[in-house]
Write a protein that binds this DNA or RNA. Structure first.
Length: 499
RNA sequence: CGGGGCGUAGCGCAGCCUGGUUAGCGCACUUGAUUUGGGAUCAAGGGGUCGUGAGUUCUAAUCCCACCGCCCCGACCA
C-alpha cells in the first residue's frame, strides 16, 4: 500500500487525475469566465519555454513575427465557403461598441450597435489574407513567411484545462508562395519542425501524418498533423500544418505578377500549435505523484533545498547553496543556462519536497551541514522517486549536463516504448470493431489498418466513438485493401479514441 | 437544447428531511512554542450577504415559488 501524492491515481480515474495534477502543480485554474482558464506562473513559465524554443526555430527557417487584429469583420469570414461552415457555429460575436446605464433593470446594457458585427478570431486566415493581398504584388514578394503569437477564441461546448478551452494561446504561421510545390514544401518543413520540437524538447513521441479528407481544416487542400498517444491510450492532435492550395488566395484576392507579367493566385499555408501542448506534456510523462517535466521544458531544472537549524547554520548553508547555484548556472544545457532555484522558504522540509515533486522539477538537491562537512549533497531525481542519493559536489557539477540529458532521453524512450507497444495492426472490420469494443483482451491503444481516404468510412468508425487520426507519412508507400470498403490502394491509417 | 446533480469561510464538506441559542468541521491562513534529512506537534486566533429575489411564519441555511450560476451524461469538438 503506497501513498501517492495525487488521488485518484491514473488507474482509478484518469480524467480526474489529470485535473488533480494541474491543481497540485499549480499550473492553471478555471476562471470565472466560462471555458476560459487562468494560466498560473508555473504553467505560464512552461509556455514561455515552448514559445522561446519554437520562435527560434521559426526564425531560423526564415519566418518573421507580426501581429494582426483580434477582431475580424464578419464579411471576411464569409469569403471562404468551407471555412465559414467549419467555424461559424463556434464564434463569439461583437455587436456593440459601448455600454449605457440600463434604466429599467439597473446596471449596464450594450448600446451603439455596429453596422457590421465583428467576430473574435477563431483563427486568422481571413484577416491575414486581407493584408497579404495588399502586401503581395510581384513574384519578388514571395515567399512571404509570417508568424503571429496570439490568443484565439472558439466557443467550445465542453472544455478541459489546456486540452480544449474557449480562449487559448497559440502561434499561427501564415505563408504565401509562388507555386504549389513551394507551399507544400513549407507545409512539410513545419510538420518536421513541430515533430522535432515535440520529440526533442517535450520528449513526446509523435506520429507525422496526413489527415483523412473528413478531418481536414475547413478550406484546406490537405492537413498534416502530429499525433501523440497519452497514457490512457487516447490520441492527442498536438499540432497541424495545412496546405491551403489557392483557396484562401482566391477568396482574399492574394495575387502576384509572375516573371512573364501574368497575374496569378498565390499558394498559401497555415500551421499552429497551442497551449494544448501543455496538456499533452502532462499526460505523456506525469505519474501518480504529480507532474513530471522533461528537463528541457522545466522552468527550474534543479531546486536546492537548504536545511539548517539556526541562524548561524543558515548563513553557512545559504552561502554554500548560492555558490552551488552559480556553479551550475555557468553551464549550459541544450543551448540555455542551467536553471536553478534555491527554495529558502520557511516551511517544513517534507511538504516543501512534495511541492517540487508535484511540480515536476527534474532534480531536487538537499543541502545541510552534514553534507557541507563531507562536501556532498543529496540528489533526488523526479523520474525515480525514492532514489535519493548522496553525490559529491564535484560530481554533481561535472555531471549536471549529463544528468539532465539522460533524464530527457529516458523520458522520451519510455514514452516511445509505451506508445509503440500500444499500436496494433488490424486486418478486418470485425477485428476493428472487436478491438474498440474491448473484446480482444487488449485494454486500448491505436489501431493501424488499411483504409481508404473517403468520407464513407466515417459511418463505420463513428458509432464506436473512434476517430481517424492520420495516415502516417512513414507508411505511405505501401498500399492495401481497405478494411471498410474493400477498395484497393488504401493507405495505412491510424484510428483511436481521442481528446 | 434534453436527462441528472449541486450552490453554506480561500478549498472540500456537514447541518436542511423533522424551522428554534452566537451556523459548524477538515484543509489552508496568522501568532507563539517545541520541532526539522520524505507530507511535524501543541496552543491561541482571523475569516460567513448560508447563490439571488419574493413568500409562509413569532422565528428560515432549513419549508414554498421564481430566477441565476456551476458540475456530470448526451448532442458538438476544424
Amino acid at each position: 500500500m503506497q501513498k501517492t501524492a495525487i488521488t485518484p491515481t491514473r488507474e482509478q480515474n484518469y480524467p480526474e487525475w489529470y485535473q488533480q495534477v494541474i491543481s497540485a502543480a499549480d499550473l492553471a485554474e478555471n476562471s470565472a469566465v466560462r471555458g476560459c482558464m487562468v494560466i498560473k506562473p508555473w504553467g505560464y513559465a512552461i509556455w514561455e519555454l515552448m514559445q522561446q524554443d519554437l520562435d527560434k526555430r521559426f526564425k531560423k527557417t526564415g519566418h518573421v513575427n507580426a501581429y494582426f487584429p483580434l477582431l475580424i469583420p464578419l464579411s471576411y469570414l464569409e469569403k471562404e465557403a468551407e471555412h465559414v461552415e467549419g467555424f461559424a457555429k463556434e464564434c463569439a460575436v461583437v455587436t456593440h461598441h459601448r455600454l449605457v446605464a440600463d434604466e429599467e433593470n439597473g446596471g449596464l446594457k450594450p448600446d451603439g450597435e455596429l453596422e457590421e458585427p465583428l467576430i473574435i478570431r477563431p483563427t486568422s486566415e481571413t484577416i491575414i489574407g486581407e493584408s497579404f493581398a495588399k502586401w503581395i504584388k510581384s513574384y519578388r514578394d514571395l515567399p512571404l513567411l509570417i508568424n503571429q503569437w496570439a490568443n484565439v477564441m472558439r466557443w467550445e461546448m465542453r472544455t478541459r484545462l489546456f486540452l480544449r478551452t474557449s480562449e487559448f494561446l497559440w502561434q499561427e504561421g501564415h505563408t504565401a508562395h509562388a507555386d504549389a510545390d513551394q507551399a507544400l514544401l513549407e507545409t512539410k518543413l513545419i510538420l518536421d519542425l513541430y515533430a522535432d520540437f515535440a520529440e526533442q524538447v517535450l520528449a513526446m513521441p509523435v506520429i507525422k501524418g496526413e489527415k483523412p479528407c473528413f478531418e481536414r481544416f475547413p478550406g484546406a487542400v490537405s492537413t498534416y498533423c502530429i499525433e501523440a498517444m497519452m497514457q490512457d491510450c487516447k490520441a492527442l492532435q498536438a499540432g497541424t500544418s495545412h496546405f491551403l492550395g489557392q483557396n484562401f488566395a482566391k477568396s482574399s484576392g492574394i495575387q502576384y505578377q509572375n516573371k512573364e507579367g501574368e497575374l496569378e493566385h498565390a499558394w498559401t499555408t497555415s500551421w499552429g500549435v497551442s497551449t494544448r501542448l501543455i496538456g499533452g506534456l502532462i499526460m505523456t510523462h506525469s505519474d501518480d505523484n504529480g507532474l513530471v517535466l522533461p528537463p528541457r521544458i522545466a522552468p527550474q531544472q534543479f531546486v536546492i533545498q537548504p536545511i539548517y537549524r539556526n541562524e548561524e547554520q543558515q548563513q553557512i548553508v545559504l552561502n554554500y547553496c548560492q555558490k552551488l547555484k552559480t556553479d551550475l548556472e555557468q553551464q549550459s544545457f541544450a543551448g540555455n543556462e542551467i536553471r536553478v532555484l534555491i527554495d529558502d522558504r520557511d516551511i517544513a522540509g517534507g511538504s516543501k519536497s512534495w511541492e517540487w515533486i508535484k511540480k515536476g522539477v527534474p532534480f531536487r538537491i538537499e543541502v545541510g551541514m552534514r553534507d557541507i562537512e563531507k562536501n556532498s549533497l543529496m540528489l533526488a531525481p523526479r523520474d525515480s522517486i525514492g532514489n535519493k542519493q548522496a553525490i559529491s559536489r564535484d560530481d554533481l557539477i561535472q555531471n549536471a549536463v549529463t544528468l539532465l540529458m539522460t533524464m530527457q532521453d529516458n523520458l522520451f524512450n519510455k514514452a516511445r516504448q509505451f506508445r509503440d507497444s500500444k499500436i496494433y495492426s488490424i486486418n478486418s472490420l470485425s477485428e476493428f470493431t472487436q478491438f474498440f469494443a474491448g473484446e480482444l483482451n487488449i485494454d486500448s491503444g491505436f489501431a493501424s489498418a488499411y483504409a481508404c481516404d473517403e468520407v464513407q468510412i466515417e459511418q463505420f468508425i463513428k458509432p464506436l466513438k473512434v476517430t481517424a487520426r492520420c495516415m502516417p507519412l512513414a507508411e505511405n508507400q505501401e498500399t492495401g485493401v481497405c478494411i471498410f470498403t474493400g477498395n484497393t490502394n488504401a493507405k495505412k491509417m491510424i484510428f483511436a479514441k481521442s481528446y
